[in-house]
Amino acid sequence: MRPFSYSRATDARDALERFQPGTMYLGGGTNLVDLMRLGVARPDSLVDVTRLPYDTVEAAGDGLRIGAAVRNSDLAMHPVVRERYPMLARAVLSGASGQVRNMATVAGNLLQRTRCPYFQDISHPCNKRRPASGCPAIDGDHSGLAVFGHSEHCVATHPSDMAVALAALDARVHVTGPAGDRVVPMPGLHRLPDGEPERDTVLAAGELITAVELPPPPAGASHYRKVRERASFAFALVSVAAVLDVADGVVRDCRLALGGVAHAPWRAELAEAELRGAPATQEDFSRAAEAELSRARPLPRNAYKVPLARNLIVRTLQELVP
């Protein structure tokens, strides 16, 4: 690991003032410290932002405001999250381990890097790690990687479960930075790789997430379901965050987001459009899933994700019908 200096910021202004080229903000460190050990992340200085006054979950109108430094376990255990946003609690609980969730922060969860095996191994080229060096995953082991929205430069996936639920809940990410405060909607924080896979998100250098705001929960029943290679403590091959509001056998509204399939949480807007106003039947759910998957571009070794995603969407929606 390269030597670095460490300092603790006391508030957002202090953090921004400490930020220089070569600085990285440190949250729980569960991803960043590992990446530093692997030689993937090489900061000159760390500014620890875990002591900033963003460690509470508070009511915000009919919604909720989640501080950026709230630990993942505290978010999942919060009584209002469990009661009103169970899909979010389940998404968080389905990720990592008890130890990691106790350390990891909400903002750190959003800003964690891909687990693409080539990104994490500095003996390989990787356009995300070293721009214009190449992408060995495209002709190599991309079995766990993207089927939507990838580019000739990068086929990485975003690994977060929490972000998938937030994308389905229309969360708003509050950001402060050298140019002032702004709000970034979910989905929208994470970008597709295009020609710049080194940029995971739309955040500019030095920008700092301060909170995630949830609007009131959407009507209907919800669920987060994750498929992975072992029963627990593994990243998603495909996951789905689904909200379904059915009245008189007809879909009034729905939300559908997929994880493990793209460089960003993938909001299934084509499927949602098919579902709204349609009968809540297996046939209609299948048609909606197929509509979304018509824009999938699977690679040779991850083509299994297409039927997996279809079946996951259909089964999850069926279970949400009252």
Binding site: Y6, L26, G28, G29, T30, V33, D34, R37, L46, D48, T50, S73, S97, G98, Q99, V100, N102, M103, F233
Partner: peptide, 27 residues
Amino acid sequence: CDHGQCGACTVLIDGRRANSCLALAVA
């Protein structure tokens, strides 16, 4: 593993279990 994947390094930090390999002592 020294990567937070095996749990052999688990300790309690302020009463909560955590992977000590992923914790920078200074933090």
